[in-house]
Computed example of a mutant assay.
Amino acid sequence: MSKTMAIRIYENGGPEVMRYEEVAVGDPGPGEIRVKHTAIGVNYIDTYFRSGLYPAPSIPFTPGNEGAGVVTAVGEGVTRFKEGDRVAYAATLGSYADERLLEADKVVATPAGVDDETAAAMMLKGMTAQYLLRRTYRVKKGDTILFHAAAGGVGLIACQWARHLGATVIGTVGSREKGELAMQNGCDHVIYYRDEDFAKRVDEITRGERCHVVYDGVGKATFPASLDCLRPFGMFASFGNASGAIEAFNLGLLAQKGSLYATRPTLFTHIAKRADLEEVAGELFDVVASGAVKIPVHHRAKLADAVDVHKALEGRETTGATVMSP
């Protein structure tokens, strides 16, 4: 049993409940590997587990779902990886640590053309973009899409990818700085949601045609106006709750606004099977390696400073990806 540093949460609450302390990490069991992190991804979903919006399997726990590093030990029956292999993942809780144990089936090999920081920054956000654009609603050339929080971590990746697929991309942002960033990363049009009625602007931009799909990771603040951005038979894909959960969704709205479709997908359902994980991650690695999608890392911090990282994240002070190092 060796020791490592990790963030531990003993009660749900604000960023201040996170403690940086020494913990024990054991040898990998059957089907497991031990990974020493070189980079740790930060995602808004981390705040949901910390606050209790998403319940952790047990308390205390170590937050974080994404990381990259090097295999330091393999358990019985593991043939896919060996010590020294570079790997990345978006898997179970526990990435806010120097070193951790993981199920080998939840991890993928990091390709030679992708560095560890990029891998840690893109696994959860990039695979989220993949399942949204390629599985939830399969974006094709000529489609018009609306992506809320276009300058966020998922947004910057998804908007580049959607443009690469031939879509017209409309993004909502909260500031001029974020608008410029969104335009540099795939958006054809940006809407400043603090100053403009985004549903009205979508109608103007599309000349009344509206969108084939709305991708909404914001939640309460953008509902139900997001539905007004859709053409008949359009898809409302709600994949996050950055402003709070959507409450009392009246399904009758879907009929009233044009026989719409609505879904609440999650990444972990899409990558639950090994074959699906390899397909989703493989397509992400390919589009990044080709240069069609770039992974912007705008913020770097030490794991010990996770409290400040969460404060910045929840204060909407960040754009693109944040990566912590042990």
Rank of each mutant, 00 (worst) to 15 (best):
G217M: 04
A104C: 11
G291M: 09
N65A: 09
F49C: 07
P224G: 14
R176A: 15
V107E: 00
H310Q: 14
M1D: 13
A237I: 05
A292H: 11
A90R: 00
V202Q: 03
P55I: 03
A289C: 04
S58K: 15
V154S: 03
A73Q: 04
M324F: 02
P30R: 10
M5A: 04
T47H: 06
A150K: 05
A119T: 01
A221P: 08
Y192A: 10
G240M: 06
F81Y: 04
H189R: 08
A301P: 10
S58T: 13
L313A: 01
V17I: 10
G142L: 12
M5I: 05
A262F: 09
G244E: 10
G69A: 06
H270G: 06
A245L: 13
C211T: 09
P232M: 10
I7A: 02
D276T: 02
G179R: 02
Y193W: 13
P326I: 08
E99H: 12
L124H: 03
Y89N: 01
L303F: 11
E204P: 12
L251A: 15
L93T: 14
A245S: 15
R210G: 03
M183R: 15
R176V: 15
F49D: 07
L133C: 07
L124I: 10
V35E: 07
D188M: 05
A221K: 02
D228W: 03
N241F: 10
D195F: 13
E279Y: 02
A119S: 09
V307Y: 12
Y44R: 14
Y89H: 02
Y96N: 11
V309G: 01
T92R: 14
A24L: 11
T172L: 12
V71D: 04
G217K: 10
A281R: 07
G77M: 08
G13P: 10
H164V: 07
R231V: 06
A68R: 00
V169R: 05
L132W: 03
A104V: 13
A151Y: 01
I59C: 10
E247V: 14
G282P: 01
N65T: 15
G252N: 14
Y193R: 14
H164S: 11
M18A: 12
Y215S: 08
V71R: 01
N65S: 13
I157S: 02
G152R: 03
R231D: 05
R135L: 10
A24R: 06
S58N: 12
R135Y: 09
K106I: 04
V114W: 00
L267G: 04
L156T: 14
P224L: 15
P326M: 04
F233V: 09
M324G: 08
K220D: 15
